[in-house]
């Protein structure tokens, strides 16, 4: 426990020193929220809807930092620590390299949590946001999306040959999901054909779960997305554990 705490403290400092996660996982979601808030204000999501545009987008915004940490942060840090042989150095200590991986997952969890809390506070204070659905359902969905995204990241970081390959795969996953899954550019403003196309992105499905929980929409609409998220989490975790390269 002493080791875990010290590693978390140090890795968090290192991460903040690097600034990139602070920007991509905390500041960027807030910036998108504020932009959407300025454009749409408290307007209803569409004519006759009983929820606002911000309410409709909240789940998507909360997924930005999960996406940044899961498919960009995690793969890069895991492959970097392998190529720098930091994982190997931990192998010749009583703690073992698994602890530092758990510490990294914890750090990206913390970024996602901070992002969720700041988004909630700003949306509530400035744009009158209220959670229409059950908070518990939202949190469960949020955790499911996180487990699923983080398992993708662990898989990519765990099996990518080197840092460069991990970086390329991370970019291929991150940027399309950031732009087209509805996380930043709202799904609802996309043409129907485009929506069908972006439905193949895992995060699009994840966002549907969060949106449904925020707006208290019927749960049977998100059965498929839940199955997709669970399947991704199981498959990617299995591949990550089975094929993880320690060096």
């Amino acid at each position: 426990m002493k080791a875990y705490k010290t590693i978390i403290k140090t890795e968090l400092k290192l991460s903040l020193r690097g600034m990139d996660m602070l920007i991509f996982a905390v500041i960027m979601p807030l910036a998108v929220l504020i932009i959407l808030g300025i454009i749409y204000g408290n307007k209803p999501a569409f004519d006759g809807s009983d929820y606002t545009f911000i309410q409709q987008s909240f789940g998507a915004l909360a997924s930005i930092s999960i996406c940044a940490g899961g498919v960009m942060g995690l793969p890069l840090v895991v492959s970097d620590y392998r190529s720098k042989q930091i994982l190997k150095r931990f192998k010749v200590t009583p703690i073992g390299p698994f602890t530092i991986l758990i510490a990294e997952v914890t750090i990206y969890f913390l970024y996602s949590l901070i992002s969720l809390l700041t988004l909630f506070a700003v949306a509530r204070v400035f744009f009158g946001f209220e959670m229409q659905g059950s908070l518990l359902q939202f949190i469960l969905g949020w955790i499911l999306v996180m487990v699923s995204m983080f398992s993708i990241g662990m898989m990519v970081g765990g099996i990518a040959k080197n840092t460069k390959v991990a970086g390329i795969i991370a970019s291929i996953l991150y940027f399309p999901m950031l732009i087209f899954s509805g996380a930043t550019l709202p799904y609802e403003v996309m043409p129907i054909t485009m929506q069908k196309f972006v439905d193949i992105l895992p995060l699009t499905q994840g966002i549907k779960i969060l949106k449904s929980a925020t707006l208290d929409l019927p749960m049977n609409n998100v059965v498929l997305p839940i199955i997709v998220m669970v399947a991704i989490a199981i498959i990617c975790s299995f591949v990550a554990i089975r094929f993880f390269r320690w060096e």
Binding site: G18, D80, K84, I86, V92
Partner: peptide
Amino acid sequence: VQFQEAHYQEN
């Protein structure tokens, strides 16, 4: 153990 090359985090 001291390794031949430095294994430490960037910053």
